[in-house]
Structures are given as C-alpha cells and as structure tokens.
C-alpha cells in the first residue's frame, strides 16, 4: 500500500500503477456536477486545486459547534463529470481524481498528459469513508450550489482507494468492460 500526502507531486502520481491500493492523507476537495460545470466553463475557483485531490462526492454534513461534521461521504458516479474533467485537470492542475465507476477517453488522455490519476473509492461505503475524514477545513459555494453540491475542503487520514486509471493510459474499468462484453456475447449466443 502506497501513502500519498497533500500536496501530491507529479512524480509520486506518475509512479502509481493501475490496480495499486493507496492511502490518501491531507487535504481533499469535494465537487459534483455543478462545480465541474462551473470550473470547466472558466468560472473562478476560490481555493487552489493545484497538486490537490478532487473527490466526486456530495457528503451528508451536519453543523457542529462553529463548524461542520461529515457523517456520510461515499463517492458519486464519476462518468457524469466526463465532459468537464479534462479541462479542469488541465486548467487547475488537479493530481488525484477520486470517484467511482471510472471515466472516459478525454480524462484518460488528460491524466497521461498532465500527470493525474483516477482513484476508485468504495461506492456506497459512506460511513466507512466518513471515518477517515478528520476535519472540515472550509466550504465554498454553499449558498449557490447547496450543501450537497458545494466544494468542501476536508482533511482526511488514510483514505483508501484503488488506482483505476494511471498516467500510462491503463484503465482497469476498460479492461473489465471489454472482458465482460465478451462474456455477455457468449451468454446471449447460448440461448
């Protein structure tokens, strides 16, 4: 298991290979559909995402004292951000994309070109992942996007994920999709 600490260097990210399990520690930003559309369209970002991690997640957050506490924070389906992701990687220097289900060709190309990897978190394991979130450091776009779609700045410790797409162009999801397509063809032909 490899440890990755914020800020994430291009060198560390380029050394990762698809299938490796990693533990992410330090700062992670959340973002969903509205943030991606905003950023890819050239919208301003109030925080720097450079050498950072962008987590496809809309957490369940409850107020605690002056701040917030995250009670559930599993990944959302990343494929919805495919139209925007490559542009955001290029423009904002994101090093880690964390989500579920994998992404498309444009994101894969951006990962190879700019030095970024896609990490698969465990879909639906919201309680388990929330345990790895130590603190809510801040939040942006809370009023405009709402709590679920807001950009949350979190401090995580040993957040486990699997490298799904690496900088060499290997994509685990593509491999499973191709192999399962072959299995499906055989089953359908059997009758």
């Amino acid at each position: 298991m490899k440890e990755l600490r914020y800020p994430f260097s291009e060198e560390a990210v380029r050394a990762l290979r698809a299938g490796e399990v990693v533990q992410v520690t330090g700062r992670v930003f959340t973002g969903r559909d509205r943030l991606h559309k905003h950023l890819a369209g050239g919208g301003a970002c109030p925080v720097s995402l450079r050498d950072g991690a962008l987590y496809h997640c809309g957490p369940v957050v409850v107020p605690q004292g002056e701040g917030w506490r995250v009670v559930a924070a599993g990944p959302t389906t990343s494929a919805r951000e495919e139209p925007y992701m490559a542009e955001i990687v290029a423009r904002h220097g994101v090093r880690l994309i964390i989500g579920k289900g994998g992404m498309g060709a444009a994101t894969k190309a951006a990962c190879a070109r700019y030095g970024c990897v896609y990490l698969q978190a465990v879909g639906g394991a919201a309680a388990l992942i929330a345990q790895r979130i130590k603190r809510v450091e801040g939040v942006s776009f809370l009023d405009t996007f709402g709590a679920t779609e807001a950009l949350w700045q979190l401090e995580v410790e040993a957040f486990e994920a699997v490298v799904g797409i690496d900088t060499c162009g290997r994509d685990l999801f593509d491999e499973v999709r191709a192999a399962s397509a072959e299995a499906l063809r055989e089953l359908l032909a059997r009758g």
């Binding site: 997640c57 809309g58 957490p59 369940v60 009670v71 559930a72 924070a73 599993g74 959302t76 465990v122 639906g124 394991a125 919201a126 309680a127 388990l128 929330a130 345990q131």
Partner: peptide, 19 residues
C-alpha cells in the same frame, strides 16, 4: 469493506450511503 460499512452505519445510526 461493504460489510464493514454496514456494521459501522448500524452502530452509529448514520446513513449507509451519502446518497
């Protein structure tokens, strides 16, 4: 992990999934 998440959510009475 899914089984572990299930136990944790039950014990804490927090959502199994954020969605």
């Amino acid at each position: 992990s899914l089984v572990a998440n299930t136990g944790l959510a039950r014990q804490q009475a927090t959502p199994l999934c954020q969605d």
